[in-house]
Design a protein around this nucleic acid. Structure first.
Length: 243
DNA sequence: TCAATTTGACCATG
DNA sequence: CATGGTCAAATTGA
């Protein structure tokens, strides 16, 4: 299980890379408006935070990790990856002060439940790339009121090859920004239990070097965008118990 | 009119 | 039986 962190970090970095490419295109075309670039920035932000938290926290969080992380600038968003069911599927969670919908994929809500012991409902989403038979799912629940914290739990891998944003344009209704292809198959675990490919996916050992990464892009974002600025205060992996 | 959301019913699990 | 997850008909909105 040495790839526990690598997979999560690589997933996040790949997503961030795709968004960075899209943002680069927008900037090159001078399509600069808060409406068009904010979703991209948000996703890049989440992606880097997730990747960094994976690298900085190689083990699932312990109860007393907060004090150690104080000097480590752990991002506001945090994530965990745990086994999910008998199939060995994995999930990860992302906490955010807003129920951010523009995380790089189109989600369709299919249910909502009142969860015992929680003041808030849990909302159930599945990936809306229906033509690509994507099985990825997502659950969103408000876990704290002040400050508001929404926890998004991602389950399963995206079979859809090209996540997309739909952003509103001030002048011309809506337009679709297609991200560069993000190859998520090797990274995210399979959700479907009837799929026999799960085993070979889970058994693969991935290394960051196995993925072609545009170094210039990374260096660009490393210098232009500080992952822990603005809203990234202290938010550590010592979550309050949900139950 | 079509697509997305809402919401109560239903199902699986412990 | 309680709970969480999913289904699907009804509703809503563009």
């Amino acid at each position: 299980m040495s790839s526990y962190i690598d997979q999560k970090a690589v997933t996040a970095l790949l997503r961030g890379q795709g968004c960075a490419n899209s943002l680069k295109t927008l900037l090159e075309n001078r399509e600069i408006s808060p409406v068009t670039i904010e979703p991209l920035i948000n996703t890049i932000h989440d992606s880097f935070s997730l990747a960094l938290s994976s690298i900085k926290s190689p083990n699932p969080p312990s109860q007393h990790e907060s004090s150690q992380n104080m000097a480590g600038h752990v991002p506001r968003r945090s994530s965990k990856k745990t086994n999910y069911g008998a199939e060995g599927l994995e999930i990860y969670t992302v906490d955010s002060p807003t129920p951010r919908a523009d995380d790089g994929f189109n989600w369709r809500k299919y249910g909502q439940k009142k969860i015992k012991g929680s003041l808030h409902h849990r909302c159930y989403y599945r990936c809306n790339a229906k033509h690509q038979n994507c099985r990825a799912k997502k659950q969103v629940q408000k876990i704290e009121d002040s400050p508001p914290i929404y926890r998004a739990t991602y389950l399963g891998k995206h079979d859809c090859k090209a996540p997309a944003f739909v952003v509103k344009d001030d002048t011309d209704g809506s337009k679709m920004i297609k991200l560069d292809q993000v190859v998520s198959e090797p990274v995210m675990p399979q959700l479907g239990m009837e799929d026999q490919t799960t085993d070979h996916i889970m058994n693969q050992d991935f290394d960051i070097n196995d993925f072609v990464v545009d170094v210039d892009e990374d260096q660009f974002w490393a210098s232009q965008y500080h992952p822990f600025s603005s809203e990234d205060f202290m938010f550590f992996e010592s979550f309050p118990a949900l139950d």
